[in-house]
Design a protein around this nucleic acid. Structure first.
Lengths: 321, 321
DNA sequence: CTGAAAGCGCTTACAG
DNA sequence: CTGAAAGCGCTTACAG
C-alpha cells in the first residue's frame, strides 16, 4: 500500500492541507514544518496520486498523441520525437494508434490537450477543440479557437525538388506512389506529387505515366514500362523505402543510378548511392507542435499555422541546390 | 459539463446505485427501470468517468507499453501491433518511449499491468512485478511471480540462416553490425550474430572480419576491405535497412548480388532482389505478449516463457530451406 | 499561517 | 430488488 498524503501529514504531525502546501513548496508554510513534511514524505516514499488529483482538479497533465501507421518510419520517428518533446515540456504523452481512441480518452480521462498527426481527422479534432486545445500536424488549416496547426511545406519542398531534377536536364520524369495513384486529384491537401506535376507543367514537361493513370502504382508496372523501351530518367518515389526497392530492381537489370535514372525518395531514412531524398524535418515538426500546444494551454486562442520547410539532400545528407 | 451517473439517476428517477447496476447490465435491476436508465444515459450522452472509477476500484484498465527507438521499423511495428492487440483485448495501451517513464506511470496511475519491449530493463521490470503483472518481450527469462516473458528465437533463426548460407557453398562470410561490434561477447542475451558465429565454427568456417574485431562496424570498412581484394561472398547485416545500404554500395561498384555477394538482412521490411532476410514475426510476438498478460491478470502466477520462431525468406517473402 | 470540512464521480458494503 | 451512506486521495474554499 503506497503512502497517502494523509499518512505523510500524520507522520509529520501537521494538517493534511499543510502537508500538501509544504510538498508544493508553498512559502506560507513555516520552514521547520515544511522540513518535517518533506522528510516524512521521503521516509514514506510518498508519491502524489495522479488520479485523485485529476479527479479534483479536472485536469490530467496527459496529452494523447494520435500517430497512425507506426510501422512507417516517418510516423515512428514522429511519435518518438513528440513523446520526447512533451516529456521535456512536463506533459505526459499517451501515444495512440487509433484516432477514435484519442477521442474516447479525452472524454473519459481529464486530458489537457491532444495532438493529431494525420491529415484526415477534422471530424475528430474539431469537436475536440471545443473542450480543450488540439494541435494537428500536416492537416489542413482551419481558423478555429483552440486549434493549432503545424505543417511541413510539401508544396514548396517538392516544387524545389522538381526544379532541381529539371535543372539537371532530366525530362522523362515519373512518379511511383501507390497513394498518389489512389488519391490524386481528390483534393488531398498534402499532395507531394501534385506539386511535382505543377512544376513540370510550368516547364512544359509532361510526366511519364501509364495512359489514363495519374502515376505508376507499382514497382512492377514501372519496370515493365522501362522494359518495353519507354525512356525514364528520373523517378519520384513515395518514400525512401520505395526508392530503395526501385534502386534494387534497376540494379538487378543493369540500369545505372543516377546516370540512367535519378531516384528521388522522401523521409531521409535511407538514401542509397546516387539517390536524392526530400527530407522532412520531423524533429522540428514535433517541437513546433508542442510549442503550439503550450501556447494554447497558456491561453492563446487563435494561432496562425506554423509552416516547416523541407530540404532536398543527397546520399551524404548534403543539401542540393 | 459532461453528465455524471448522478445526473442519469436523477433523470431516470432511480437511486445512484440502481443506475450504475443498470448500466453494467446487472440482472437484479427490474427491466423497466433498466430501460429508463439506459435511455436517460443515452439522452444525456453519459460516459463513465474513468478516473473516478479507477480511484475507487484501484484499477485502471490501462497498460503502459514501453517501446524504445520507435524510429526503427521493428519497434514501430511492434508498438502498433501491441496497441492493436491490447485494444482488441479491451485494455487501454499507453505507449511510452522512456522505460523509466512507465515506472513512474505505474506508481502514479493505477495501471493494471505493463509490457516492456526491450531486453535491458530487468531492474525496472522486476520491481514492477511485485506490484502487478509485467510481460517482457525479448528479455532474458527469469522465473518470477507475475512476470511473463515472450521471446523470438534469435538463436534458432540465425543458426538456420547460417546453415542455409553454408549450404549454398558460401564460405567467406562476414557480419556488418554496429551493435554486435560494440556488444559482442558481453553476454547480451539476444545476440543474433553469435548464433551465426557458432554455426560457422561448427562447420569449421572462420568468419571474415577485421583483425581483432568481432565484425565489420561500418559499411565503409566493409567496402574498403572488399576493395583491398579480400574475398567475401555473404554478409549478415544488422537489419534490412543496412542490407539495402550494402546492396546500394555494392551495386555502385558493380558487385553483383547475390552472384558475387549474398546479403542477409533482418526484419523483413525491405528485401531487395536476390537478398534474404530473417523475419521476426512481430504480430505473433505482440499477440503472445498480450495473451500472457491476460493470463497473469487472470491470476496465473508463474508462466513458462513463450518462444516464437523466426523464418528465413527471400525477396518475395518465400521461405528458404 | 494552520487546520477542519466539503466534494470531484464513482463503487462497495449494507440496511431496508 | 432498491437506495442511502461511506470513502478512494486529493484540492479548494473558508474559518480560526
Amino acid at each position: 500500500m503506497p503512502a497517502t498524503l494523509y499518512d505523510v501529514a500524520a507522520s509529520a504531525r501537521v494538517a493534511l492541507n499543510t502537508a500538501r502546501k509544504a510538498l508544493q513548496g508553498d512559502p506560507t508554510v513555516r520552514p521547520y514544518l515544511a522540513r518535517r513534511v518533506i522528510e516524512a514524505a521521503a521516509r514514506l516514499d510518498y508519491r502524489p496520486h495522479t488520479l485523485a488529483r485529476a479527479l479534483k482538479t479536472r485536469r490530467l497533465d496527459v496529452v494523447p498523441v494520435s500517430v497512425i501507421n507506426l510501422h512507417e518510419i516517418y510516423f515512428g520517428e514522429l511519435a518518438e520525437k513528440l513523446s520526447n518533446a512533451l516529456i521535456a515540456s512536463n506533459l505526459e504523452p499517451i501515444l495512440c494508434t487509433e484516432p477514435d481512441h484519442v477521442f474516447e480518452l479525452v472524454q473519459t480521462l481529464n486530458t489537457c490537450g491532444s495532438i493529431f498527426a494525420y491529415a484526415d481527422f477534422d471530424q475528430l479534432s474539431h469537436p475536440l477543440a471545443r473542450t480543450q486545445p488540439v494541435v494537428t500536424i500536416n492537416a489542413p488549416f482551419h481558423r478555429k479557437a483552440n486549434l493549432g496547426c503545424v505543417n511541413a511545406d510539401f508544396e514548396g519542398g517538392f516544387r524545389r525538388a522538381a526544379q532541381a531534377v529539371l535543372s539537371r536536364g532530366r525530362k522523362r520524369i515519373a512518379v511511383l506512389s501507390e497513394i498518389f495513384h489512389k488519391i490524386a486529384y481528390k483534393n488531398w491537401p498534402f499532395d507531394k506529387f501534385r506539386a511535382v506535376e505543377r512544376t513540370l507543367a510550368e516547364a512544359s514537361v509532361a510526366p511519364v505515366r501509364p495512359v489514363g493513370e495519374p502515376c505508376f502504382e507499382t514497382l512492377g508496372r514501372l519496370i515493365e514500362t522501362l522494359a518495353e523501351g519507354t525512356e525514364i530518367d528520373a523517378v519520384f518515389c513515395e518514400n525512401d523505402l520505395w526508392a530503395a526497392r526501385l534502386f534494387g530492381a534497376l540494379a538487378a537489370r543493369g540500369v545505372r543510378v543516377p546516370d540512367d535514372v535519378l531516384i528521388i525518395g522522401c523521409d531521409a531514412g535511407l538514401i542509397l548511392p546516387g539517390c536524392w531524398s526530400v527530407k522532412i524535418p520531423i524533429g522540428d515538426l514535433a517541437a513546433q507542435a508542442v510549442a503550439t500546444l503550450r501556447r494554447l494551454l497558456a491561453g492563446e486562442v487563435f494561432i496562425e499555422p506554423v509552416i516547416v520547410p523541407l530540404s532536398l539532400v543527397d546520399e551524404d545528407g548534403k543539401d542540393i541546390a
